[in-house]
Design a protein around this nucleic acid. Structure first.
Lengths: 214, 214
DNA sequence: ACCTGAACACCGTTCAAGT
DNA sequence: ACCTGAACACCGTTCAAGT
């Protein structure tokens, strides 16, 4: 696909001297993520993004409906990253109980390492549907992996036989809650975050484990 | 204190015709809460608040450092309301196990009934301390009630004898997580919110209950 | 002490026009 | 098809001035 015939010029100006910007939509998304990660959502302005990309501040409107849509894309990107990391955590331990706990730690870890990005993933929705029907929601996609992990543990007798969807939603609530409290500064030090995460995973385990009288 | 000598004029103009506005700080806070509740945080503008109060848009700066400070006051007000409702729930059941579960339901109920306000309570903090030292943090205040409830249940043998602070933080994580998922539209119907809340309280109970081998 | 009005620097978004 | 530049309607905030 890539034909690197035309060698990149040595002194590329800040402003793209070509008419097209290779892949502007991707560049816009990447720059938005970068800005949010480094300076927070409030620092994200369409003008700033355009400037940094050497492009007009209205160029964005060719590719995104508006700022809200850009933030939606940022959120989707975050969910993709999260799903990836959760999957890695699960498989790195070969699933089962250890894999499940690794997922929990990976979840909170993701939120702590990308606090602003994580906030964007959850902080929107004021009535807007956002996702065109037919398009898979990356958020639900990440959720699917959790449901699978639950089901496997049920067959292993590690988790009580309630509705997997309900159980998964509960588990999500717990790790999401821990993550949010960490981000809100209630948990002041990294050590305390780690402590609460471990404690939460233990209590979660007891909470969803098999019933006492089988 | 109140001396209602001067009868309120029949046709009060929208614009206060007096120099002073009875209690402008309180009025500003109340109007901000009202706006956020009805239209969301994004719809909150200092100009709008001023207009609706018949006051200049810069009058606010006499009483709040800036918009961020106003939002901080809104958050504090929310924590006060929340603490009140949690306390009511607890005492309405006479404490104990039933009281504790009522608190859980009240917590999620508060978030669902005041979604935007709840978001403001948790959605800020980007490094700012916000609370002058010495001033009690209404957030921590509400948390204190939860710790007390845990301790009482420990003496009743209903909750395992771990560190109450840690347990309380865990419980908070769970209900906060459920509330956030509800607000984010993951739980689509009120019925599903209720279901998850009840389920979460059950699993929470098993999770923090006394250890199997005492 | 408390509030106003004009001014400033900054937004998101629209739209006719350019290539 | 993709991007620009000027324009519009809106922000939060500052500050000299009024009462």
């Amino acid at each position: 696909m890539a034909r690197p015939q035309q060698p990149r010029r040595r002194s590329d100006r800040k402003h793209a001297d070509r008419y097209h910007h290779g892949d502007l939509p991707r560049a816009l998304l990447h720059e938005a993520v970068r800005t949010i990660q480094k300076q927070g959502v409030d620092a994200l302005t369409l003008r700033g993004v355009g400037d940094r990309l050497g492009v007009s501040r209205t160029a964005l409107y060719r590719h995104f409906a508006n700022k809200h849509a850009l933030l939606g894309a940022v959120a989707d990107e975050g969910f993709r990253m999260l799903r990836q990391e959760l999957g890695d955590a699960w498989t790195s331990e070969g699933g089962g109980r250890a894999g499940f706990e690794a997922m929990g730690r990976a979840y909170v870890g993701f939120a702590v390492r990308h606090p602003s990005h994580y906030r964007v993933m959850f902080g929107r929705r004021a009535g807007a549907p956002d996702h065109p029907p037919g398009t898979p929601d990356p958020g639900l996609d990440a959720f699917g992996g959790l449901v699978n992990a639950i089901v496997e543990q049920q067959t292993l007798g590690l988790v009580r036989r309630d509705d997997p969807q309900q159980l998964a939603t509960y588990v999500w609530s717990v790790v999401h809650g821990v993550a949010m409290l960490a981000l809100d500064g209630i948990l002041d030090s990294p050590a305390r975050i780690r402590e609460l995460t471990d404690f939460a995973i233990e209590r979660l385990r007891t909470g969803i484990g098999p019933a006492r009288e089988p």
